[in-house]
Design a protein around this nucleic acid. Structure first.
Ligand SMILES: [Mn+2]
Ligand SMILES: [Mn+2]
Ligand SMILES: [Zn+2]
Ligand SMILES: [Zn+2]
Lengths: 136, 136
DNA sequence: ATTATTTTTGAAATCGTTACAAAATTACAA
DNA sequence: TTGTAATTTTGTAACGATTTCAAAAATAAT
């Protein structure tokens, strides 16, 4: 998805585009590294010296409620965020820690036991060793 | 999978079958409700009054390392555990909170972008409204 | 029996996250 | 503009799940 005007995009999703909100969302679409709250905070603190970590928490929670970010709970001790809300999977390398995207064909899953369940979110996580770390 | 002798099963997986460890694993195979640490602790405390929560943490971490339990991080604030380590999905009802199992056909996923990656764990989480909660 | 090793225990520390109230900003109306 | 209400941001304190750590207990080895 291409987002030309971030403020407009936030408005269209029922979010008042404050300066901090725009900057946080911009960070997410420019850095596709599935950052944690702390990564977003530390990255923006250089440019917004008054930024509070609470604001980053508030903002990302608001984004999640409005469904413009995906919340990734692949690790129990660190939530990560993704501005790409399309259904796709995440591979976490157990060696270097990097998070890779991969494609998922939704209608290829077998939902025998949960027929007539209303599915709101799909999360597919793989863990293992990435290509780079295997050779090294 | 059917486990006849828990102590034997632990031994076969490189775990010394202490009383606490056997009891924790027995709880997991008898209660297929994907319990949290606290659920295991509170349930066993009645029968093992001296039990420490740290022991439950230690034990479940050991089980995870030896790959006889699956760690479920479907929520960011509560890790849950499953003695069924076969590849299967979990549906979390956002209304009643219950965790449902469902089947997954592994080779139906599309791993285009992560070819030659070594996959060690597969986690498939769905969130939504379960059948019961939809009608009520 | 003595000693060494492993396991359990409970209290304290850690750390990500949330609650909360004050300060700052923005929106609205007179 | 000016005043006032509503919203947002900020920083500190509180919270809660998990980890650390050292002592106590249990088990294994000699
Ligand atoms: Mn992604
Ligand atoms: Mn399960
Ligand atoms: Zn790697
Ligand atoms: Zn339900």
């Amino acid at each position: 998805m291409e987002i030309e005007n971030v403020a407009e995009y936030l408005k269209n999703n029922g979010i008042k585009p404050s300066y901090q909100r725009v900057r946080v969302f911009e960070y997410l679409i420019k850095n596709k590294n599935h950052p944690s709250v702390n990564m977003v905070f530390k990255a923006l603190l250089g440019e917004i010296p008054t930024l509070s970590k609470t604001t980053v928490y508030n903002t990302l929670k608001l984004f999640a409620e409005k469904n413009i970010v995906m919340v990734i709970n692949i690790e129990d001790n660190e939530t990560r965020y993704d501005a790409d809300t399309s259904v796709h999977g995440h591979f976490k390398c157990e060696k270097c820690g990097e998070l890779f995207d991969f494609g998922v064909n939704e209608n290829e899953l077998n939902f025998d036991k949960i027929e007539n369940f209303q599915i709101n979110q799909t999360h597919i996580y793989l863990k293992g060793i990435c290509k780079n770390c295997k050779t090294n």
